[in-house]
Simulated scan of single mutants.
Amino acid sequence: MSSAETVLSASGLVMRFGGITATNNVSLNLKRGARHALIGPNGAGKTTLINLLTGVLTPTEGRIELLGEDITKLAPHKRVTRGMVRTFQINQLFDSMTPLETLALVVSRHQGLSAQWWKPLGSDKRVVERAGELLAHFRLAEVAEQPVKQLAYGKRRLLEIAIALACEPRVLLLDEPVAGVPAGEREELLQTVAALPADVSVLLIEHDMDLVFSFADRMTVLVNGTLLTEGDPEQIANDPKVKEVYLGHGAAHV
């Protein structure tokens, strides 16, 4: 498999809601192992584009391919089984469960053991080992047996990403991972995002320019539902069009 292989491709995506065009002929290619950021001011069409990629919306025009397969009309849950996972889709955690129980449940389901999830956790060594690996990687080991409702918000965000990784994605869409996280908890989250597995292709949707520029090796800028430009971080930071778009939006790097 070539390192330059495109794992996710969107071509000419158009999304119309009545007379409104929310996404206008947008194309995007995500390479294997990429760290790709999708940025743009509020109302740029980022959420619509992500909803198209993940199957929440079906495009008016255009095509989406995952690992060379046309998934344009595929249901969201089927995209997950084919390797595309979005943190935003995991929109709530089970407050009464612990991180260990939560991850054991997800790992069991992913490994085809969902009918047995209720068995004692120690009954399947594979589940316990994988859950333990995820707890360690996402800095959750010390809170593994605390009810989720007692976790600090940053830890809850880490657990959401851990759940996504438990599904063993080929493509991971991170939807504003640091949104709402207090300043004192951000560094741990930023370090964990930076240490995501190299073989997972990541598309980051984020307003925090510090995170974007420290994480991404490729960036796509959307404005008014249209692709403004794409390039590496240095090209984006020095692009006059991007500077104009972000003027007054507090983006220190641009």
Score class of each variant (00 low, 15 high):
Met1Lys: 03
Ser2Ile: 10
Thr6Arg: 11
Ala10Gln: 01
Gly12Gln: 14
Val14Pro: 01
Arg16Leu: 05
Phe17Asp: 11
Gly19Ser: 14
Ile20Asn: 12
Asn25Thr: 03
Leu30Thr: 04
Lys31Phe: 04
Arg35Ala: 03
Ala37Phe: 03
Ile39Gln: 02
Gly40Pro: 02
Pro41Met: 07
Asn42Leu: 02
Ala44Arg: 02
Ile50Thr: 06
Asn51Thr: 01
Asn51Gly: 04
Leu53Cys: 02
Leu53Lys: 03
Pro59Ala: 03
Arg63Met: 06
Ile64Glu: 07
Ile64Cys: 10
Leu66Phe: 09
Leu67Gln: 13
Gly68Ala: 07
Glu69Ser: 12
Asp70Val: 08
Ile71Gln: 08
Thr72Cys: 09
Thr72Ala: 12
Lys73Arg: 15
Ala75Arg: 15
Pro76Lys: 13
His77Leu: 06
Lys78His: 15
Lys78Thr: 09
Lys78Trp: 14
Thr81Glu: 15
Arg82Val: 07
Arg86Ala: 14
Phe88Gly: 12
Gln89Cys: 05
Gln89Phe: 13
Ile90Glu: 04
Phe94Ser: 04
Phe94Ile: 13
Asp95Ala: 15
Ser96Thr: 13
Glu101Val: 08
Glu101Lys: 13
Thr102Gly: 04
Ala104Tyr: 09
Gln111Pro: 01
Gly112Met: 11
Ser114Tyr: 06
Pro120Glu: 13
Leu121Asn: 05
Lys125Gly: 00
Lys125Ala: 13
Val128Leu: 15
Gly132Ile: 01
Glu133Lys: 11
Leu134Met: 06
Ala136Trp: 04
Phe138Ile: 11
Arg139Val: 04
Leu140Ala: 11
Glu142Val: 13
Glu142Asn: 14
Glu142Pro: 06
Val143His: 09
Glu145Ala: 11
Gln146Cys: 13
Gln146Trp: 14
Lys149Asp: 11
Gln150Asn: 14
Glu160Cys: 00
Ile163Asn: 01
Ile163Phe: 02
Ile163Asp: 03
Ala164Ile: 08
Leu165Lys: 05
Leu165Asp: 06
Ala166Thr: 10
Cys167Met: 15
Pro169Val: 05
Leu172Asp: 03
Leu174Gly: 03
Asp175Glu: 08
Ala179Phe: 05
Val181Pro: 12
Ala183Ser: 14
Arg186Ile: 15
Glu188Ser: 14
Leu189Trp: 03
Ala195Thr: 10
Ala195Asn: 13
Ala195Cys: 03
Ala198Val: 04
Asp199Gly: 00
Asp199Gln: 12
Leu203Lys: 02
Leu203Ser: 04
Leu204Gln: 03
Leu204Ser: 00
Glu206Thr: 02
Glu206Gln: 05
Asp208Trp: 08
Met209Gln: 00
Asp210Leu: 07
Phe215Tyr: 15
Ala216Asp: 06
Met219Lys: 01
Met219Arg: 04
Thr220Asn: 01
Leu222Asn: 01
Val223Lys: 08
Asn224Gln: 12
Gly225His: 04
Thr226Arg: 13
Thr226Gln: 11
Leu227His: 11
Thr229Ala: 10
Asp232Ile: 02
Gln235Lys: 09
Gln235Asp: 00
Ile236Ser: 04
Ile236Gly: 02
Ala237Gly: 05
Asn238Tyr: 00
Asn238Ser: 08
Asp239His: 09
Pro240His: 11
Val245His: 01
Tyr246Thr: 01
Ala252Cys: 00
Val254Lys: 00
Val254Phe: 12
